[in-house]
Write a protein that binds this DNA or RNA. Structure first.
Length: 472
RNA sequence: CGCGGGGUAGAGCAGCCUGGUAGCUCGUUUGGCUCAUAACCAAAAGGUCGUUGGUUCAAAUCCAACCCCCGCAACCA
């Protein structure tokens, strides 16, 4: 059995679960389930990113202990992940003691590529952050949020010498040794890589307390991304455990907004540690609401919980995996969601199961016990291997629709009326086997429904008392 | 001249690399069927393929110019 490791981006705990997180989980989960289905041993990471000034600030605003705050948030996210049916095997919180300890080990191992330097720039005491020169000019030297003049400030930071890895990394990206999907993101990253300066990877403790302390320097705390990115290997036990069976990851799923960290800083860290680069970085797009970015100020945020509660988790996964473009930004609207549910899940698949089960039950059809329906078609596998999940799904769906057509053409009810028992039995058995075959391919996408379908046609066939995908 | 993607039926998209009757899904209309969740199956209507010009016997497809939208460049999942 081949070992495969799949990762999700760990959400930052300064907000609640939203539809973008769900997207990330759905994609990674389908991938993980597919790999398991095709005979691999799969480890699948999920987790929460809990350090950084924004989180500390948020806790402050609410007047609670930071640890209490993140404990609650992490719980919320865990519940959400469970609700999505994410089949993860390993979970990491960046405040886990073992994670913090391992991150410090990682820092030590990277020491050759880290140096201390002064940074001088414009700083807003209101925002508590440095701003770029460009921003300074655009705002005429005054922070638009706080109406305060920017101050010239100097601080010491540790830097990761990105230049040590640029050449190697560029080649790895160009040759697809580390494949970046989709291709247009790869181009963006290559361009960005050229321009990337060394990366500041720590903050003075006076400015940021809520983070992992830099080893042997009590005045500095690690920048949250160093800590966060490390989770992918600390959760496997690095450095004290040998992770070579699992690492490099078969695929790492990230949102397009954080691709840069995963495609530049993260591989630089890995190279510094002497570890191989992930095989694939899958960068997915944003989910829009009616063509617009979801934002609290516009008030068009779609709550994933609400969507799941409407028609169940499989319907949610179905929509996000088939009708939301994996790589480009694309649109969620309730109308599209309802249409997909009613026309496709209920009418095509749900109804197909219902009519076949009824036909079988009325005519006393049973399947042989050893009927093997575990095969995946080659085309399906090819598409899944390329992370073209929606296309693979389309392919399987054609089979589902084809079955509806075949029932109409073969008219088993007429065979029953004419007493053509043998023909009828053969006709229905073939149809059911083909349905179950397709059902296997559906299982990574629709785990719950798939299980139900398998159960319906096992042993004594009975049509389900409540439809698979009830309409309202 | 920053880099990149795109503009094809009411909507969402494929086709473009390797020119040759413009295709898919949803929606609309009509017909068929009755095993089924008013579900299923079939057929039809609907497009000057962003604009202009060029190459060619032939251009959605190749070339040029222009118009428009979007992504990245800037710690938004």
């Amino acid at each position: 059995m081949t070992k495969k490791y799949i990762t999700t981006a760990i959400p930052y705990m300064n907000g609640n679960p939203h539809i973008g997180h769900a997207m990330d989980y759905c994609l990674a989960d389908v991938c993980a389930r597919y790999l398991a289905l095709s005979g691999n041993e799969v480890r699948f990471q999920a987790g929460t990113d809990e350090h950084g000034s924004k989180i500390a600030q948020k806790a402050d605003e609410l007047d609670v202990e930071v640890q209490t705050f993140v404990d609650e948030k992490a719980e919320t996210f865990k519940e959400f992940i469970a609700k999505l049916g994410v089949s993860y095997t390993d979970f990491v919180r960046t405040t886990d003691e073992w994670h913090e300890r391992r991150v410090q080990e990682i820092w030590r191992k990277l020491a050759d590529h880290i140096y201390l330097a002064k940074y001088e720039g414009w700083y807003c005491t209101g925002c508590e952050r440095f701003i770029t020169d460009k921003e300074y000019e655009e705002n005429g030297g005054v922070c638009p949020d706080h109406l305060k003049s920017y101050e010239k400030l100097e601080e010491e930071n540790y830097y990761l010498r990105l230049s040590d890895f640029k050449g190697r990394l560029k080649k790895a990206i160009e040759t697809d040794e580390m494949l970046i999907l989709p291709d247009f993101r790869k181009k963006e990253i290559l361009k960005l890589l050229e321009e990337s300066p060394d990366m500041s990877i720590s903050r003075p403790v006076t400015q940021l307390k809520w983070g992992v302390p830099v080893p042997d320097d009590p005045t500095q705390v690690m920048y949250v991304w160093v800590d966060a990115l490390s989770n992918y290997i600390t959760v496997l036990g690095y450095p004290e455990e040998d992770i070579s069976g699992w690492w490099p990851a078969a695929a790492q799923f990230v949102g397009k907004d954080i691709l840069r960290f995963h495609a530049i800083i993260w591989p630089a860290m890995l190279l510094g540690l002497g570890l191989p680069l992930p095989r694939v970085l899958v960068s997915h797009g944003m989910v829009l609401a009616d063509g617009q970015k979801m934002s609290k100020s516009i008030g068009n945020v779609v709550d994933p919980n609400e969507v799941i509660d409407k028609h169940g988790i499989d319907a949610f996964r179905y929509f996000f995996l088939r009708h939301i473009d994996t790589f480009a930004d694309s649109d969620f609207t309730w109308e599209k969601f309802e249409n997909a549910y009613n026309n496709e899940l209920a009418n095509d698949l749900g109804n197909l199961v219902q009519r076949l089960a009824t036909l079988a039950s009325k005519n006393g059809i049973k399947l042989e016990n050893e009927t093997n329906v575990s095969k995946l078609s080659l085309e399906y596998q090819e598409l899944m291997d390329k992370f073209e999940f929606a296309k693979a799904f389309d392919l399987t769906w054609e089979k589902v629709q084809g079955l509806n057509k075949r029932i109409d053409e073969e008219k088993p009810w007429e065979l029953a009326k004419n007493g053509e028992k043998e023909k009828l039995g053969e006709c229905l058995t073939t149809l059911i086997v083909d349905l179950l075959q397709a059902n296997t391919e559906l299982s990574p996408f629709l785990p719950e429904a798939s299980k139900k379908i398998a159960a319906i046609f096992a042993g004594e066939i009975q049509p389900p008392t409540t439809p698979l995908f009830p309409k309202n």
